[in-house]
Nucleic acid binder design. Structure first.
Lengths: 167, 167
DNA sequence: TATTGTTATACTCTATAACTATA
DNA sequence: TATAGTTATAGAGTATAACAATA
C-alpha cells in the first residue's frame, strides 16, 4: 500500500534530459534527493508533522538528556530554527522543556509519553517511505546502495561518518 | 586539484546522527543531494553561472532547434523561471532568441559561438565536480552507484527513465 | 564577556497567476 | 478561445543578526 497519493501519469512523455546529465551520478543524486524529499513530505502531510520533527524525536528517544543546543548540533539544525520546531512539538504535547537548574540558560528537552507514541508511529511511516522509495531495488541492491551512499556521506556529511567509525 | 575551496575542519567533531537516520538510504540520499548541490554551487561561483544555465546550454548543444517551451519541458523547469535564466545567458552573449517566423509567439533559442565555448568549459567543470564528489569511490563502485541511482530515477524521475529505454 | 535560547529581519527560491501578443 | 512568452506577486524556507537572561 502506497503512503502517498499516486500521481496521474503525464499524458505526454516528457522530452528526455541531455545524456550528459543522466550519465552523472551527482546529477541523479541531486534530483533523487529532491524526489525523496517530495515523497517524504507527501507522506508526512497527514501527520501534521515534518521530517525535522521526526529527527528531533529520534534524538530525544535515544535517552540521554538533551538541551536545545545539543539537539541542534546533533542534527545540524540552526538553533533559531529549532525553537519553532520545538514550539510545535510542545503544543502537541510531544515534548516538554524544563529549565536546567544547574545552568538556568539551558532548556532540557524530554519526550512525553505521547511523544514516545508519536515517535513509534513515525518510525513505521519512515519504514514505509523507505520501502516505497526503494521499491525498484531488491534487498541485495538496497544494501549495496546504502553502503555506497555511506561511503560518500563519510566525506560529505561527517555527522554520518562517525556512526561508521563506531561500528 | 579541488574545484572548491577546502572547508576548515570543525574543531569539535559534531555529535552523531541517530542510527536510524544513517541506516536509511532515503535519508542519506536527501542529505547527499543537498551536499552535492552545495559543492556544485561553490564550484560554479567563479563562472558567474548556475547549474541551471549549464543544463540549458546542454540542451541547446544537442543541435535540434528549441523553443523556450521545449527547453522548459525537457528540463522540467517552470516557463516563467526560464525567462530570467535565458535573459542572463543572453546578456552574456551565450545564446540568442529569435522570433519563429512560422509562429510569432515562439522564440527559437540558439547557442552563439561564445555559448559553445562556455558549454565546453562547463563540461570540464562538471567532470571535475563529479570526480571530486565521487572521490571516495573507485571506477567500479561509481558504475555500481550510477546503475542503482538510474534504476531509482526510472521510477522517481521519468525524464531520466526515457534515456534508459533509448539505449 | 560569552553562551543559551528567543525573536525579528531579510534574502533566496519557487509557485502561482495575471498580462501581451499571437494563433 | 488557447498558447508562448513575460511579468508581478506572494509564500515557503533559510540565513543572519539583534536581544534578554544567565553564566
Amino acid at each position: 500500500m502506497s503512503v502517498t497519493t499516486p500521481q496521474p501519469a503525464p499524458s505526454f512523455p516528457a522530452a528526455q534530459l541531455p545524456e550528459e546529465l543522466v550519465a552523472s551520478a551527482t546529477f541523479l543524486l541531486k534530483r533523487l534527493g529532491f524526489a525523496a524529499k517530495e515523497l517524504t513530505m507527501a507522506a508526512y502531510e497527514k501527520s501534521g508533522l515534518h521530517p525535522y520533527h521526526y529527527a528531533i524525536l529520534l534524538v530525544l528517544g535515544e535517552g540521554s538528556p538533551e538541551t536545545q543546543g545539543s539537539i541542534a548540533d546533533t542534527l545540524g539544525y540552526d538553533r533559531g530554527q529549532l525553537v519553532g520546531l520545538l514550539d510545535e512539538l510542545e503544543e502537541r504535547g510531544l515534548v516538554e522543556r524544563r529549565r536546567d537548574p544547574n545552568d538556568r540558560r539551558r532548556h532540557v528537552v524530554r519526550l512525553t509519553p505521547d511523544g514516545k507514541r508519536a515517535l513509534q508511529k513515525l518510525r513505521t511511516l519512515s519504514r514505509q517511505i523507505e520501502d516505497e522509495f526503494l521499491a525498484p531495488l531488491n534487498e541485495t541492491d538496497r544494501r549495496k546502495l546504502h553502503t555506497l551512499l555511506l561511503r560518500l556521506a563519510e566525506k560529505h556529511e561527517p555527522r554520518c561518518a562517525i556512526s561508521v567509525a563506531r561500528r
